[in-house]
Design a protein around this nucleic acid. Sequence first.
DNA 1: CATGAATGAGCTTTCATTCAT
DNA 2: TATGAATGAAAGCTCATTCAT
Lengths: 220, 220, 220, 220
Amino acid sequence: MSETGAGFAKQAFLNLPAEKRERILRTAVEEFAEGGYEHTSIQQIAAKAGISVGAVYKYFEDKEALFACVVQEGLGVLEQTLQALAATEEDIALKAETILRDLLAFSRENPELIRLYHVLTTSGNRDVLRQFSQRIEALSASVYRDAIAAGQKTGDVRKDVDPSFFAFLLDNIFMMLQFSTACDYYRERFSIYTGRQPEDCDDWIVAQTLMFLKAAFNFK
Amino acid sequence: MSETGAGFAKQAFLNLPAEKRERILRTAVEEFAEGGYEHTSIQQIAAKAGISVGAVYKYFEDKEALFACVVQEGLGVLEQTLQALAATEEDIALKAETILRDLLAFSRENPELIRLYHVLTTSGNRDVLRQFSQRIEALSASVYRDAIAAGQKTGDVRKDVDPSFFAFLLDNIFMMLQFSTACDYYRERFSIYTGRQPEDCDDWIVAQTLMFLKAAFNFK
Amino acid sequence: MSETGAGFAKQAFLNLPAEKRERILRTAVEEFAEGGYEHTSIQQIAAKAGISVGAVYKYFEDKEALFACVVQEGLGVLEQTLQALAATEEDIALKAETILRDLLAFSRENPELIRLYHVLTTSGNRDVLRQFSQRIEALSASVYRDAIAAGQKTGDVRKDVDPSFFAFLLDNIFMMLQFSTACDYYRERFSIYTGRQPEDCDDWIVAQTLMFLKAAFNFK
Amino acid sequence: MSETGAGFAKQAFLNLPAEKRERILRTAVEEFAEGGYEHTSIQQIAAKAGISVGAVYKYFEDKEALFACVVQEGLGVLEQTLQALAATEEDIALKAETILRDLLAFSRENPELIRLYHVLTTSGNRDVLRQFSQRIEALSASVYRDAIAAGQKTGDVRKDVDPSFFAFLLDNIFMMLQFSTACDYYRERFSIYTGRQPEDCDDWIVAQTLMFLKAAFNFK
DNA sequence: CATGAATGAGCTTTCATTCAT
DNA sequence: TATGAATGAAAGCTCATTCAT
């Protein structure tokens, strides 16, 4: 349904064989996630992806368009993951546990995507920010808000809270846990706070976080 | 005990009159917070601070050392704010409200420092990261952990939770609220989630967040 | 006699259907005249002409050959215009007026050709320059020189002047008037000198210029 | 009175020792005049002038500013030459001869400046064009116009012509003679028209041109 | 000590030209 | 023959860092 790279890439990129297209995007994700936007050069990406500098400019208007495309691509993967989670018809407590485990597993398997998302938050470009923020809203905010609102109807969630704001707090927590798994600074911070390495204690993280959330949301 | 700029600056910087030292750091904070690390140039900072480029290199080994020093400085201010909070001998619920209000007020008054901290999280230098994470631990982790542990003793906080991890979650929430106040990306995200502008609803933020925390920590 | 594009194009270009050949040259004239030699790219011309980049290199050795061909083509049109003028059997004063009016009209209708000619004068390629200068001689120099020499015989033109040099001066004046009509810099210059816009005062230009020329050549 | 490079150069350039400043401008004049604006690279100029690329950007905002500065510089020299001519209190016929000889001598001695002026006419930048056109007006247009108007008063010049337009035609002729001396294309054109090399026949050029002008202006 | 001019590597971007299809 | 993707050299410009004054 959604063409890989649509929206930010030029037609030439979409015409590429899938293998090459993915190789380029994967390389770009890695490099941007590794070094941030500024530190990553087009030449670096081109060399690593085995194409010429000129080719990059055949495929993308400029460096920013490449970055935007790469972010969109990463968000697409996140989106699919989340939509799968949202679809499950489970009890809210179980649902929370599933989401939590899956998000951690996702961070473990795609740390570059999480890092890339983190890099995005430091981008100075207002327009791109707005676009992606909106994408992310469609992505997670509504899922969380709807789940909370539904929980309020079934009595699984206390009724005196604002679903939007609690969805926001919920995502804050999930986001920070993912950053703590994938991004250097937050990994360091995690182990200083807890005395543990984030990769060694998924079960503990899940257990403690669920205790926190259950109480906060008042579900049993 | 802590000389302004100690640790990352050269001796020459420490010998400077306080006024000049602060002017330089203040300028650097503003510029780094405004444009991020990469977009900010030494010549820009030097010019704005009214000193020569050469002087910067007399005071700091290189750009990174200046940045590190600037961050440390900013954290120092945060530290003082927090220590003042920690010292108050209030009931934990009231304490939480006070901290929350003060952190929001701080973000409002010193958005550059928050942005600077955010910029820091994207820095690639492992050593600098480690150092600052450790500073921050001395800064907030222990404060929160101790407060939670104390609460557990007085019965204000449930006893079945890990104080370290809950301190971590607590700081996550505080941190994201501060980013939501000061950093473009997170401001955008906040208003998409809640439909409000973060600057227009401090009371609402505080009320909702407290409801969340009170339940999560089970204090009354 | 003169195949369109002969001399600078490859055989493949000459084999093209006339419509396509002319479309390519017309497009190239426009682009070169609009942006100058350097600013105009082969891909730009190819795209606008609806052919492939590869085709351009099938038709022309390189960019310079295309440019040369384009100039030649433009000169061909100028040539025809001038030959038509030369053929008229009028009194020299009337002839001058006719030529003047027609050259101005030509500049008005084909400003790109005039601009193209102007661009040519800044080209660095000696060989190409020589060729075109020679073409132009066959084009205008002889026409003017012959007319002057003829005028000297009939007594319409003073006998003490060198027909070659006066032809040269005459063409200088015509050329500058055409540049003043078609080229940005010279248009500006014209209005600064005269306080008028060159497009608003053809009659005045013709009248004044004729006064100048009549006196200079001493014809009545 | 007029600082070398004022208006387009940064302060840093004006602070340079005169020797260096002149070396840079001279080099730039030569390179721009030789290859035109596009063909001439900053690196080329920097290398030939014995400075670094970075230095060029310390002295000038960008390539265009350097070019503008260089042109202004060249025009300054032309200006002085012309002002000296204008000041002479001679009979108009003698004045014309003097100007003509001096302009030719100037072209012979400073062909790069003439070429530079020619390059300027192909520049696409409207603002720069306007500025320089206006400089040139103050430079030559008024000189010629005033001389013609004065001649009309003394009876040396026919009274039925527009001084502005005749000044324009006069400058056209002078300009083309200078181009014919200094610029490849126009040199070629000259010898094709006249069968002579422009550098071998100053006296002839002057004599013929004066005959032309005397008749045109009707002075004796 | 302080200055700020100078350096030059490195970045993004363009485009004439080639060549596999 | 025609295509247009691919190349990569070269351009304009920035900026961390050095060093003569």
